[in-house]
């Protein structure tokens, strides 16, 4: 082992995602001694996105610019990453805390013969071991895990780390080959990519602010109040299952046990009672605000700040005030 760390970037819309920067920050803190931190970018947009690693101080980036990776399952990307991690003699691979990162780490664990841990909120070396912390049970508990010696893949919890700041570094890129992909992976075809909603803001898992609405919104039309507030805050929109069950919004909006888990800086729950199945999907948010007419709603037990009252009066006033405050 050389103590080198490989950070796999996620390329989206031709650019590295913000969560890639978070992975660089963790990778940087884990590089041992004089070893190197190396970036990795895959897919046909990999070459043009790779220099963005320099913004986080990464000077060397491997680029697997194979267009065959674009519409292939994540397993295809894992093949190249495992080969390069092996060649570098890395002992840690860090991947972003996204759907992509998590899927990649599972394949990589087998292919590169490494331990893998997801949802990581803390990571440090301890002699020849690596110790991590991660929330479990929907943020109702935190577990610490240790990997003794050997290789580790870390997939991070979104927003748990800050991207490195500082002067950009010039980037040296190196083309790397992936080799022929196994036919079993090529027979799966991605036929289309659909953005969440037309002109929508940030995605639920990436957003640093999430505004979610519940049954209290009364109808699909009135749910717009929540979306207006989200637009004013630059936030992503979520919903309780009552809303997605009623068909007011698609299931991709659902936050909770059977929807998405989010952990933004700010979570605003509007007209949501706070059933345990909803709470486990958002309880690890840093700051929680609840707006509900029922002062005894369980959501107020996990919220940091609460407005008790009629959302149909409070939310439009809040949207207007946010607009005013952001303009000034």
């Amino acid at each position: 082992m050389t103590g080198a760390v490989l950070v796999v970037g996620e390329v989206q819309g031709g650019h590295l995602t913000p969560s890639t920067g978070e992975a660089v920050a963790v990778g940087r803190s884990l590089v041992a001694g004089a070893a190197e931190l190396v970036g990795y970018a895959a897919g046909s947009a990999g070459a043009s996105a790779a220099p963005e690693f320099g913004g986080w101080g990464v000077a060397r980036v491997l680029v697997a610019a194979d267009p065959a990776l674009d519409g292939a399952p994540v397993a295809a990307t894992a093949i190249g990453v495992a080969a390069e991690a092996e060649r570098l003699g890395a002992d840690i691979v860090v991947v972003p805390g996204s759907t992509f990162g998590r899927a990649l780490s599972a394949r990589l664990a087998i292919r590169w013969k490494a331990a893998a841990v997801t949802g990581v909120t803390e990571a440090r070396r301890d002699g020849s071991s690596l110790v991590v912390a991660r929330p479990v049970f929907g943020g109702r508990a935190t577990e610490r895990r240790r990997v003794d010696g050997g290789r580790v893949i870390l997939a991070l919890r979104p927003h748990a780390f800050a991207s490195p700041a500082g002067a950009p570094t010039p980037v040296r890129t190196e083309e790397v080959a992936v080799g022929p992909l196994p036919p079993v992976l090529l027979s799966a075809r991605r036929v289309s990519v659909e953005p969440t909603a037309k002109g929508a803001g940030p995605s639920l898992t990436d957003a640093s602010i999430v505004v979610s609405g519940g049954r209290g919104l009364r109808s699909a039309e009135e749910f717009r109040l929540v979306e207006d507030l989200a637009v004013s805050l630059g936030a992503a929109v979520g919903a309780s299952r009552a809303v997605t069950d009623a068909g007011w919004r698609p299931t991709s909006y659902q936050v909770g046990q059977t929807g998405r888990s989010v952990s933004p800086q700010l979570y605003v729950a509007v007209g949501i009672s706070g059933a345990i199945q909803h709470l486990v999907g958002m309880m690890s948010s840093r700051v929680i605000v609840a707006i509900n007419s029922d002062a005894s709603a369980p959501i107020f037990r996990v919220a940091d700040y609460g407005l008790v009252g009629d959302l149909f009066q409070l939310v439009p006033a809040l949207t207007a005030e946010v607009r005013r405050a952001r303009a000034s």
């Binding site: 508990a141 240790r146 996990v302 609460g306």
Partner: peptide, 16 residues
């Protein structure tokens, strides 16, 4: 990986 710790966060005090 092996578990080496399990902790419960301090209970939330309720919304202000």
């Amino acid at each position: 990986s092996v578990p080496v710790g399990f902790a419960l966060p301090p209970p939330r005090t309720g919304a202000r």
